[in-house]
């Protein structure tokens, strides 16, 4: 287990590129244990690419990525599998397996990695379905029968199937109505408190940033331009940062008690 001081994710000197197009250059990032970190940035700045690179779906051109203190480029397949079982990933649209029901989707990682009897698996899957706030009849439904919000919740339930220490969320509230998005925020917050999760969240949602993120990292100019609490963001003077956090939508999203900080 990592010490509380050690970052759960440590990225150093990361460079990612597709052909000639460099997405990240000299990117450093620490994610502390037990925090909710929001990654923000303009469209096309490579937020999702960063997430995909950390979880190993993209190969970095240079740099070092450590998760749970392990350098993911240098681990054996067995070690990698052990790390993968400690994290969960929620893709943008849930990425549920369309040929399986929601309950079966949630049981996939349990079936694959844990030698669990079917009865216990069903019990735990049912618990996860309830925990993410899906209605009871959702367990037997196929992904195509669900709404976008329900698919996201089901995806979250699947990413929580193995009770991970760390979850990656790719725009968890995009495409949800404001009530659904607020519920989702609360859900993530509650799970983070009760399960002690570390959350790495890519988002555009200023409400989410205000409501649940402990820290915010702003991705611009190919690296993490600034990282800190909301109050730090509001004080920052970089024009883009200012525009982002003081634009008309940001003002609308900001709770009144933070007004003093800006």
């Amino acid at each position: 287990m990592a010490e509380p001081q050690d970052p759960i994710i440590r990225v150093r000197g990361l460079r990612t590129q597709f052909g000639d197009q460099v997405v990240h250059q000299d990117l450093d990032l620490d994610v502390r244990g037990g925090e909710i970190l929001g990654i923000v940035g303009g469209s096309g700045t490579g937020k999702s690419v960063l997430l995909r690179t950390i979880i190993g779906l993209n190969r970095p051109a240079a740099g070092r990525i450590e998760v749970f203190g392990k350098d993911l480029a240098a681990v054996t397949p067995a070690e990698r599998l052990a790390v993968e079982q400690r994290w969960g990933v929620l893709f943008q649209d849930g990425a549920l397996f369309s040929s399986l029901t929601v309950a079966q989707n949630i049981e996939v990682p349990m079936k694959e990695h844990l030698d669990m009897p079917a009865r216990l698996r069903d019990e735990i899957a049912a618990l996860k379905i309830a925990m993410v706030g899906l209605p009871p009849e959702a367990g037997s439904k196929y992904p195509s029968e669900l709404s976008g919000g329900m698919r996201k919740r089901a995806g979250l339930a699947r990413s929580l199937a193995l009770d991970p220490d760390l979850i990656f969320l790719d725009e968890p509230t995009s495409g949800l109505d404001p009530i659904g998005a607020a519920n989702f925020d609360q859900l993530i917050r509650r799970l983070q408190i009760n399960l002690g999760l570390t959350v790495f969240m890519v988002t555009h949602d200023l409400d989410s940033l205000h409501a649940i993120c402990d820290r915010i990292a702003l991705l611009a100019e190919k690296h993490i331009l600034v990282i800190g609490r909301m109050a730090d963001m509001l004080r920052h003077e970089h024009p883009w940062v200012h525009e982002y956090f003081h634009g008309p939508r940001a003002r609308a999203a900001r709770p009144n008690n933070e007004e003093a900080g800006g």
Binding site: A126, A130, P136, A138, G139, N194
Partner: peptide, 14 residues
Amino acid sequence: DQVAANDRPVEMEP
């Protein structure tokens, strides 16, 4: 508490 709050029957199979 979290577990207790979420103990309710869920339909698992069609």
